[in-house]
């Protein structure tokens, strides 16, 4: 008879550990599809770009377009607004990043880093606090947008200036087409690179 009190691992120990390990890894691999199915589906991701004709937009006018399920503000700014946005010193901004998807993440929040053509300011229209749609056309204390939900003020470059919102309104990827008559929202990275986006 063999001695069963030995401390040596037995074949049974091995099977225990192997079966347990297979169950744990198999379980994790099974759970993942059930979690990942809730992320945006392929067709949702593919719906990521639209074109909008902006040739009829007059100076000082603003339109809101629906893009990826939410609003995007397109504002043709006046000379005065551009000058005002550019005059702001960056250390007065609560959020000092450009939040511009066309530029590297660390680009500073200067007005030049927020636009491709200074005349057109194009930003996503959900307040960075809890997602309400701010009121535009120069509203608020900083001549830009005002969010009535909890009182966030954005300036003429749609940067947060006061209120609970933590970040500037983000700039979606976009390029101009047809000599600036059309804006394409949701541009690819190649298009963005070719369009002349660069950190100022």
């Amino acid at each position: 008879m063999t001695d069963h009190t030995t401390e040596e691992p037995t074949r049974r120990d091995f099977i225990y550990i192997a079966a347990g390990g297979a169950a744990a890894i198999g379980g994790a691999l099974t759970i993942w599809p059930f979690i990942h199915q809730m992320n945006p589906a392929a067709d949702t991701l593919a719906l990521g770009s639209i074109r909008k004709d902006i040739s009829s937009l007059g100076v000082g006018q603003e339109i809101t377009v629906m893009f990826r399920g939410g609003p995007v503000f397109i504002r043709r700014r006046t000379e005065a607004e551009i000058a005002e946005a550019r005059a702001v010193e960056l250390d007065r901004l609560p959020d000092d990043l450009a939040r511009n998807e066309n530029l590297p993440d660390n680009a500073s929040a200067s007005d030049a880093n927020r636009v491709l053509n200074p005349e057109y300011l194009i930003v996503k229209g959900n307040c960075t606090h809890l997602g309400c749609v701010p009121v535009g056309n120069g509203a608020g204390d900083y001549d830009g947008w005002f969010c009535p939900c909890h009182g966030s003020h954005y300036d003429a470059s749609a940067r947060i200036r006061r209120g609970p919102a933590p970040e500037n309104l983000p700039v979606p990827t976009y390029i101009f087409e047809n000599d600036g008559a059309v804006v394409k929202l949701g541009a690819t990275s190649d298009e963005v690179a070719a369009a002349g986006w660069s950190v100022a």
Binding site: I35, M38, N39, P40, A41, R68, G69
Partner: peptide, 17 residues
Amino acid sequence: REWLWGDFAVGNATLNR
């Protein structure tokens, strides 16, 4: 947040789930 929405905003995917 996007995982909850299944989209880039509250939308049809959100309503279904």
